[in-house]
Design a protein around this nucleic acid. Structure first.
Lengths: 259, 259
DNA sequence: TATCAATATATATTAAGCTATATAACGCTA
DNA sequence: TAGCGTTATATAGCTTAATATATATTGATA
């Protein structure tokens, strides 16, 4: 979807104009008329008309459908494509704002470099990335123990270095991402198993994906999906099938935190 | 450094103007004169003068030092502050471009959401994040083995899911970030130790940071720093001191990859 | 002290974009 | 067929910002 980034983002010259364009689309969706939407934004009718015309020509698919004449004189409505454009813009805009906020914190003005990490804007290979809220922080000189609450209600524990807590600026109540590799996830069918200092999450097996040696098992834990890679023989020994109840077990030292 | 983000980034209305401002500063630094720099950008003299005046007034510290009269008529030179501004802008600009490029790939236009991860723009708690280049990819249905070359020449191995390789769009030659927790790093003084399927990196102990129970040891491996957290007793047993040669050992399944 | 090339400052012109306004075309309804 | 509120289209006017241009000022140097 390269075209989208060009329309929305590369337009750095005047992202302000872009915001008006999206506001216009949004208003059209609400009002059903270009002239009325133009007044809402506000924008002159011709200005609004030119914008829509430009977008319809530029986009691979029209953004609005216009009707002239008829009862009520006609009207303008968003196409499915136009609605997607608005929705996508909002996602990207929010993410962009977050980017702007973050980068000012991690940039070192005096040296002209990124303070902690060379790149913080990246995707990582870990399959398991779950949103959570920090509910407790315990720290000594070297290590810190974090407790985080998932939306399913489960509390997860992570042990990371105290330096990392400081670098991330972690505080109680922060929304964070709990990260762990699928290799770090063990499975157990003994639901009453007692373990210390471990994360134990009960869920339902959603999907099983086999290869010659390994096996990826996806477990639904209260709406969050956890991927586990275990050996094929382990799955056979436990006799795990889709729909079974299982425990996903993750060592707290295998759990990382992102913010 | 909140002010910086306001100057550089919040100026979304006309980041184009901003680019001109930076280009002007850069030209001044090269030429040593405002009028000559204005011609280079290009920009009218008054336009350039107004820009500089605005920046000098807006910034907490002047951006340039101007001299009128004297041999050669005077001149304009960047202050230390102005030089930092240019340097910092370049870092942020590059990072911003990367952001723009990435977000168009991970945004799903049809649903208006982020495709793979809810947030990819984050810092993570892992202390060890080292730049490397992908030199080999072996993949089966579930797992993939990656070989990556550090700038020090060492090859590191990572085992991640095949799905992750696909999501990240990993290819040979890509620049990636090797990520692992300091808890996953073992230390050994037996430099000839043979291990299979492990990452073994020789380096020099740079720093030792003690607490009651744990101990953080920082090892310099050919210019890259690797942090290891081990128990205090282990450090005492191995008798590790700053300046010693040690091996840092990381299981390949503990190594994550970021892009 | 005259000279020189730069800064400092003001004014008129140009360019671009948007607004305001007017008018035509349209097609359903009563 | 007359009425309506909308889209479609053209034009004149306003606003803003940048440019072009001109002129004064400055201070070390020959």
């Amino acid at each position: 979807m390269k075209f989208l980034s060009e329309l929305i983002l590369m337009d750095g010259d005047n992202s302000f104009l872009l915001q008006k364009r999206i506001a216009l689309l949004d208003a059209i969706d609400k009002v059903g008329s270009l002239s009325a939407a133009a007044k809402m934004v506000p924008l002159s009718y011709k200005g609004a008309w030119d914008m829509i015309d430009a977008m319809n020509n530029f986009c691979p698919s029209p953004v609005v459908q216009k009707a002239t004449g008829g009862v009520g004189g006609g009207g303008t409505t968003l196409t499915e494509y136009g609605k997607n454009l608005v929705k996508t813009y909002e996602v990207i805009y929010r993410e962009h704002q977050k980017f702007l906020e973050t980068i000012s914190h991690v940039t070192d003005f005096d040296s002209g470099s990124l303070k902690f990490f060379r790149r913080f804007n990246m995707q990582i290979s870990a399959r398991n990335q779950i949103v959570a809220t920090v509910v407790e922080i315990k720290s000594d000189n070297v290590n810190a123990t974090l407790h985080m609450k998932l939306k399913s209600g489960y509390i997860m524990t992570s042990v990371i270095t105290a330096g990392a807590v400081e670098n991330l600026g972690l505080n109680l109540g922060d929304e964070v991402i709990v990260i762990f590799k699928s290799n770090s996830v063990l499975l157990s069918t003994d639901l009453n198993l007692k373990l210390s200092a471990m994360n134990k999450l009960s869920g339902i097996v959603e999907k099983i994906h086999l290869s010659d040696i390994n096996c990826e098992v996806v477990v639904n834990v209260g709406g969050d999906y956890i991927a586990s890679v275990v050996t094929k023989s382990a799955v056979e020994a436990l006799d795990i099938k889709v729909g079974d109840s299982v425990n996903a077990i993750i060592k707290s030292s295998d759990v990382m935190v992102g913010k």
